[in-house]
Simulated assay, not measured.
Amino acid sequence: MSSDLQNFIGLSSALTGIPADRLAPAIDQVGLPPIFLEFITPRITPDVLNALLTQYATMAADLEPPDRIAQAVLMDGAQPATTQTARAARSIMKLWLLGVWYQPYATGSYKSTDSMVVSDQAYINSWAWKIAQAHPMGYSEMFFGYWNATPPSLEDYTGVPASGQQGALS
Rank of each mutant, 00 (worst) to 15 (best):
D4S: 12
D4H: 05
L5D: 01
Q6W: 00
I9M: 01
L11K: 00
L11Q: 01
T16R: 05
G17F: 05
P19E: 07
P19T: 07
A20N: 03
A20S: 14
P25M: 10
P25Q: 06
A26V: 12
D28N: 09
V30L: 11
L32M: 09
P34C: 02
L37M: 10
F39D: 06
T41E: 10
P42Q: 10
I44Y: 02
N50V: 03
L52I: 12
Q55S: 13
Q55M: 12
Y56F: 15
Y56C: 00
Y56Q: 00
M59Y: 01
A61D: 10
D62Y: 04
L63D: 08
E64T: 07
E64Q: 14
P66N: 12
R68G: 09
G77S: 10
A81R: 09
T82Q: 15
A86V: 07
A86G: 10
R87F: 03
A88M: 06
S91N: 09
I92H: 01
L98A: 11
V100Y: 02
Y105V: 07
S112F: 08
V117F: 08
V117N: 07
D120K: 05
Y123Q: 05
Y123R: 13
I124W: 05
N125H: 15
S126P: 01
W127C: 03
A128Y: 13
W129P: 02
K130Y: 12
A132C: 05
Q133F: 02
Q133M: 13
H135W: 04
M137Y: 11
Y139M: 11
S140C: 10
M142I: 05
F143T: 12
W147R: 13
A149T: 13
T150Q: 14
T150W: 11
P151G: 04
P152G: 07
L154A: 06
L154K: 08
D156P: 02
Y157R: 10
Y157W: 15
T158G: 05
T158M: 03
G159R: 05
P161Y: 12
P161N: 12
A162G: 14
S163G: 09
G164K: 01
Q165D: 06
L169V: 15
S170M: 09
S170C: 06
S170Y: 09
